[in-house]
């Protein structure tokens, strides 16, 4: 048994060096060299060069003038990007059923005359609590409200949503979706544009 100790310990140390130091540093060098923006979090900068968010991390929106994202179950507040979490509510849990009802009521209160059906992703919380996107249907549902609040035409907004719709990747993988933060940033810029004209 003793003659097994030295090979075990030395081999463990060498493989640790290889897979725990050399390998991650090599990946870091390659990733930082080839994809510096993505490897650092796809961060977005504002007009004064300040960081305003990550392209792929959702933010909380509750003002009717913005498109809203998926409900988020992170604690202690929604879209806490330092502590991701889903709701983990089971399908028959009364808490889930009530939460969905409350979200339906909020959406209806913000836009009482909208008669479109609410897409399910807009009233169910995401897995990560940081979902940056909503379905195309969920964006279309909110066009009426945002157009009203901002005094824009629905046609203009439909165009903007369309511009911000990502189809299935390579027309094949995943689902079509709309990035909420980028759409809202464009919305604020859009308003600015129409004033300046």
């Amino acid at each position: 048994m003793l003659n097994y100790l030295k090979p075990t310990i030395v081999l463990f140390a060498l493989l640790t060096l290889l897979t725990g130091v050399v390998y991650p540093l090599l990946v870091t060098a390659l990733a930082q060299g080839l994809f510096p923006i993505q490897a650092n979090g796809s961060l977005l900068k504002g007009a004064e060069d300040q960081l305003i968010g990550s392209e792929i991390i959702g933010q909380h929106f509750s003002d009717p003038k913005y498109f809203w994202g998926r409900p988020s179950a992170t604690s202690p507040y929604p879209y806490n990007a330092a502590a991701s979490s889903g709701s983990n509510l089971g399908p028959t849990n009364p808490l889930l059923i009530n939460a969905v009802k409350t979200r339906i009521d909020e959406l209806k209160k913000a836009d009482p005359v909208n008669h479109l059906k609410i897409p399910i992703d807009l009233v169910t919380s995401s897995a990560s609590g940081l979902d940056p996107q909503i379905s195309v249907a969920a964006a279309e549902y909110q066009i009426h409200r945002v157009a009203n609040v901002r005094h824009l035409s629905e046609k203009q907004l439909r165009h903007l949503v369309h511009e911000h719709t990502e189809g299935r990747q390579w027309h094949l993988f995943g689902e079509a979706r709309v990035n909420v933060l980028k759409l809202n940033l464009a919305l604020d810029a859009f308003k600015f544009q129409s004033w300046s004209k």
Binding site: R70, G86, S87, N88, L89, P91, T92, L96, I97, V100, K101, I104, K108, K117, I118, P119, I120, D121, V123, T124, S125, S126, A127, S128, D131, Q133, I134, S135, V136, A137, A138, E140, G174, E175, A176, R177
Partner: peptide
């Protein structure tokens, strides 16, 4: 989830949404 069925909510899959049981799922994966 039949318990979430509601005349105001659309759970059906279509070209513009994945539909179905979206609680705890991400939009991009559906």
């Amino acid at each position: 989830n039949p318990l979430l069925a509601n005349p105001d909510v659309d759970q059906a899959a279509s070209l513009t949404q994945a539909g179905g049981n979206m609680e705890g799922k991400e939009t991009r994966f559906g």
